[in-house]
């Protein structure tokens, strides 16, 4: 429960952090909230020899609007997502999800950026980024580049981000009027990762689905977007037979690992169940 020795660096700017990252090489790790990294270091699964703490870089925090986009600093902590009037008004799914993550202590330090780039399939923000059609702004030695969340997640602890890059911002389109949304997360106890969870973002037009995004947490090596289920629902009325088909399509893409939360059969069934509940709640919120 005690990590090996490491050196600690506290840059004041993104440029300085990128410089340090390049200079110190692969033995260095960025430190955000520390709530994924430090447990791994205490168990000695991760043994970085340098930590580059991003907490003193003010530019990386905060939430603001740019037209129809919301821009969220990578170092914004979960509690700030929960408390943001802007998000509550324009992107209420995010505060609702943040409230379901870990516990108040963790949410006080843990950041949205760390949660996304860590690449842990149990983390909630990756699926939410997929459901919200978010883009990730990465800064590296060569400047900034923007990647869509869809396609960013490659596998457990694997993403499109390069070793010398820093996630600086997340850009998310605000909800159009009458967007329904929900995130249903089954967990064993408060503070636990999902046994299975499903996010649904939905708009209806004349009783038919005009927009739908479905994403799943912890039922595969990475967050999943349920393309086939989306296609089954788009343009359709939400009748029981359709919902059954979509749920079957959701379950068909699940490939969860067995663990103490359950075996693959249970987790797959729960992904279907969470999807149905999220869809029902999202539809009810479309009004």
């Amino acid at each position: 429960m005690i990590p090996p020795e490491f050196d600690y660096h506290a840059p004041r700017s993104v440029a300085e952090a990128i410089h340090l990252l390049g200079e110190l090489g692969p033995d260095a790790k960025l430190l955000a909230g520390g709530h994924s990294l430090l447990p791994m270091m205490k168990l000695r699964f991760a043994q970085p020899t340098h930590l580059i703490d991003l907490n003193r870089i003010d530019d990386l925090r905060g939430i603001h609007e740019e037209g129809d986009q919301l821009v969220i600093g990578a170092m914004t902590v979960e509690n700030d997502l929960i408390d943001s009037p802007l998000l509550r008004a324009r992107l209420p799914l995010l505060p609702e999800v943040a409230r379901q993550i870990a516990d108040p202590q963790v949410r006080n330090r843990g950041t949205i950026g760390g949660d996304i780039v860590h690449g842990d399939p149990g983390n909630d923000h990756p699926a939410i980024a997929l459901a919200l059609d978010a883009s990730l702004v990465l800064a590296g030695p060569g400047g900034e580049r923007t990647l869509p969340a869809d396609g960013f997640f490659l596998g457990t602890y694997m993403t499109q981000m390069a070793e010398d890059e820093i996630l600086v911002r997340i850009r998310v389109p605000a909800f159009a009027p009458r967007t329904g949304y929900a995130y249903h997360k089954l967990k064993r106890k408060t503070g636990d990762w999902a046994t299975a969870a499903a996010a649904v973002v939905l708009r209806l037009d004349g009783g038919r689905v005009s927009h739908v995004r479905i994403a799943l947490t912890n039922v595969a090596p990475m967050a999943l977007r349920a393309h086939a289920a989306e296609a089954l629902l788009l343009g359709q009325a939400l009748d029981a037979a359709r919902i059954d088909q979509a749920a079957a399509a959701v379950m068909a893409i699940c490939a969860p690992a067995d663990d103490l939360r359950g075996d693959a059969e249970y987790k797959t069934a729960m992904a279907g169940c969470m999807f149905r509940r999220a869809l029902a709640q999202a539809a009810a919120r479309c009004a």
């Binding site: 939360r261 359950g262 249970y266 069934a269």
Partner: peptide, 8 residues
């Protein structure tokens, strides 16, 4: 009697 076992 956790959820997983009860579900089984």
């Amino acid at each position: 009697h956790n959820a997983y076992r009860v579900w089984q």
